[in-house]
Simulated assay, not measured.
Amino acid sequence: MRSSVILLLVGISLAFAGKHSLKYFYTSVSGDKTFTATGLVDDVQFMYFGINTKKASPKTEWVREIEESDYWKRQTHLLVEQHHWILNTIWTESAGEHTYQITYGCEWNDETGKTNAFRQYGYDGEDFLFLDLKRDEWISPVKQGFRTQERCNNETIRLVHWKNYLKMDCIETLKKLLTLGKSSLEKTVSPQVSLLQKNACSPVLCHVTHFYPSDITVTWMRNGQELKNVKVGKLLPNEDGTFQKTVTLQTEADEWRKNEFSCVVKHQSKTFRKTLTEKEIRTKNKTAAPFDVTVVVVLVAVILSLSLIIGVIGYFVYQRKLKPALSGSASKCWLSFCRISGYVTANTSPSDSENTSQSSTES
């Protein structure tokens, strides 16, 4: 096993320069007793296990070339055992529907040689327990996990096992997978950068998509200085195997007209800079300049003036036509108009007035 890995590593070239990762995600739900496992190398899924099929299977063509013929059988056996352990240990002590998660993996920078690793457990979406490799101990951030923390730290063999796996075996497996997937994983796709905005009052989004590999830096700059008060979105996968990311800037239109705001994207393929201007910003994939508040105010004033003039003219015309027919029944006409419109006379109680006005509005 160890020798075959070494032979495969000979093919690694500087084309892989940068940080690489191998991650595993296990998820189990107590209610329906489901269990899934996913493996990713450089954020690309290469393995999947589902309890319905009870079989670990490759998700990419290049990973099928793993030399060991029994590799997938061994993976299946380990994951079935993991599922049984969760059923017999975790869910026997829990009532109701809950979620249990295990996340572990390692990182390797082939330029600096620096490595990192992690293993952590989650319960109902919250951190429950993690392995601190610098202190060589398990730590729980919540009171409910203190007993588990103490028990795990007393199991010296288990601690040594995971320490050796994460610092040595995991790194070797990562390097092997990088070699197997070299033709696919070392491809480089330059990102597409767009500045998006729903309307003039909405935040401005720097949307970066269709890039590979996933390692990317997206920042907003104001007059050459990096802004810290921005909202950084999560890295998301696209259907074609590339990635996307969004970083949101909250600023007023007047402010970015008077200053230079730029979205700077750094990817191993290229560095991009998009300066925030009315020409660059887009709304629903169409170029759209922000509304000018002054123009809006003028338009509203003109419309109101025209409405007032039309109303006055209509009133005098109405009075001239109605005056010959008016007599002592004028007060009755006015009272009828009030009732039809939902208004009431002055001697009506406040509660009646409120109810009548509401019914008129609803109708």
Rank of each mutant, 00 (worst) to 15 (best):
T277M: 01
P203A: 04
K323D: 02
L326F: 05
M221W: 07
S202Y: 13
S94Y: 14
T76G: 06
E252C: 07
V293I: 13
T248F: 06
E111N: 08
V10S: 14
Y100R: 10
T188A: 10
M168F: 11
Y212W: 05
V10R: 15
S329R: 11
T242R: 05
Q75N: 08
Q268V: 15
E155I: 14
N109S: 09
D124M: 08
S190E: 13
T92K: 13
K234D: 12
Y71P: 02
N347V: 13
T99E: 07
K274M: 09
N154M: 05
P191N: 06
K274C: 07
E137Q: 15
T251W: 03
K182W: 08
I313V: 14
Q82S: 12
F146Q: 15
S190P: 03
Q192W: 02
E67H: 13
T209L: 02
V298D: 13
E252R: 13
A301G: 03
N88D: 15
S69P: 08
K167F: 14
D32W: 03
C263K: 02
R273H: 13
V80E: 11
G11T: 03
I216W: 03
V218N: 01
V298C: 06
L180E: 00
R282M: 09
R2C: 11
C333M: 15
T356V: 09
D110Y: 08
H267E: 07
T60P: 05
A301Q: 13
L180F: 01
K266M: 04
C206H: 01
I102F: 03
K167E: 06
Q250E: 04
L304G: 14
K163D: 02
E255L: 10
W220L: 02
T283G: 01
N52I: 12
A288N: 12
F337C: 07
V142S: 07
S331L: 08
L40Y: 13
S194T: 15
L177F: 05
V265C: 05
L180Q: 09
W220E: 00
C333F: 15
